[in-house]
């Protein structure tokens, strides 16, 4: 499923003294099966943008097309749209409300009007996706779980609607490294195994470098850069200006080049750099026992 934004602008509190243009003439296409990272510092408009993708906000100007159809046109079923484009908000664990994990995850599918049997199967599948054992946790209260587990239950609540596009607003905010790695692995699996299109808001350039195939940099309500990560990470000044910085591996490459070391232009993840440096060491014959 593809999503296209055509000249989208959004103005908060239009006409009042507090009027603020959060999005300004955004044009953007996201293809089926992409893993897109959306970056930019607080207030750049990225949270406003993601709320346009499933019709929670309607553009002041412009159009949002999902599979070529304007989602804000008359007679479009928003509920159905929201099943197809799943949105996970920041700190989603704060939206849990049911007595049991199972009931909470079933909330979305139940709103879709699915039969009980199908709901039950979807809950199982969703829990499976987020690495939560159904037998162990389905009947527990979500409020008895740890923070990281609660977040996974909340994500399962969106996954149970089986969306083909999953939008996540800073899914790892506030988690410790273990919790973060787990969430990122879950997202990776959904992308690779279920071919779910991922749009992830992230502040961590190192995570973006490692995971996303494309990144979009936002600044003051506009798109400042969009393209494959290896291209965008070349634009250091722009990233700096957007308050983002570059991954540690890119910094090291830059320093090494300054020292006269020949390195290819498009190295940007730690793994790539590791492999390349290792190759250079081997060529120099400096490795013992090789």
């Amino acid at each position: 499923m593809s999503i296209e934004l055509k000249h989208v602008s959004y103005v908060y509190s239009a006409g009042s003294a507090f009027e603020r243009r959060a999005l300004n003439d955004i044009c953007l296409t996201i293809e089926d099966g992409e893993y897109v990272a959306l970056c930019g510092h607080t207030g750049c408009g990225k949270s406003t943008l993601v709320q346009h993708l499933n019709g929670l906000l309607q553009p002041t100007e412009g159009q949002v097309l999902v599979d070529g159809k304007d989602i804000n046109a008359e007679g479009v079923d928003r509920k159905r749209l929201r099943q197809k484009v799943g949105l996970v908000f920041q700190y989603p664990e704060y939206q849990l409300f049911e007595e049991t994990v199972e009931k909470d995850i079933a909330f979305g599918p139940r709103n879709m009007g699915l039969p009980e049997k199908e709901i039950h199967e979807r809950v199982r599948r969703a829990m499976d996706h987020v690495h939560m054992s159904y037998e162990k946790y389905a009947q527990s209260s979500p409020f008895d779980l740890s923070g990281g587990q609660m977040r996974r239950v909340a994500i399962a609540g969106v996954l149970a609607m089986e969306p083909s596009v999953l939008v996540l607003d800073e899914p790892t905010a506030g988690l410790d490294p273990r919790g973060r790695d787990r969430i990122l692995r879950i997202i990776q699996e959904l992308h690779e195994e279920k071919n779910v299109t991922i749009i992830m808001v992230s502040h961590s350039m190192d995570d973006v470098a490692r995971l996303a195939s494309r990144m979009i940099v936002m600044m003051d309500g506009t798109i400042a850069a969009s393209g494959p990560c290896r291209e965008v990470f070349q634009k250091r000044d722009l990233l700096e200006q957007a308050g983002l910085g570059v991954p540690a591996a890119v910094k090291l490459c830059l320093k090494l080049r300054e020292q006269g070391l020949q390195l290819p232009e498009d190295l940007y993840t730690a793994e790539e750099l590791h492999d390349h440096l290792l190759k250079l060491f081997k060529e120099k014959g400096g490795l013992k026992g090789c």
């Binding site: 540690a248 090291l252 320093k255 090494l256 020292q259 006269g260 070391l261 250079l280 120099k284 400096g286």
Partner: peptide, 13 residues
């Protein structure tokens, strides 16, 4: 990054 640059350079530059 600075320390790494220095050490890698010792071996490769």
């Amino acid at each position: 990054v600075e320390e790494m640059t220095q050490e890698v350079c010792k071996l490769l530059c």
